[in-house]
Amino acid sequence: MVTLVYFVMYIGMLILISLIDMFIWKQSFFQVIIRLFTLDEGTNEWFVSGTAFIGLICSIVIDYRLRKNKGQKQL
């Protein structure tokens, strides 16, 4: 469930940001999305992408533990 929330928020934020970028830069949606997704080499963008990935892993782990706890309680 946390993973689902993670994906919903991730995609939602991405869409929101790209909508605003579309408004500001007057570009099409795909151009903006491509620009957002490309990891420019030479910048340190991979720091945050990496952190976001860690967040994803965390949410999977949390989900796993939640399910385990639930199972235990039911037993």
């Binding site: 929330v5 928020m9 945050v48 967040g55 949410s59 949390i62």
Partner: peptide, 11 residues
């Protein structure tokens, strides 16, 4: 959800 969401915000 604190940690995963925090990473999304910093992203």
């Amino acid at each position: 959800m604190v940690l995963p969401m925090a990473t999304i915000i910093s992203y």
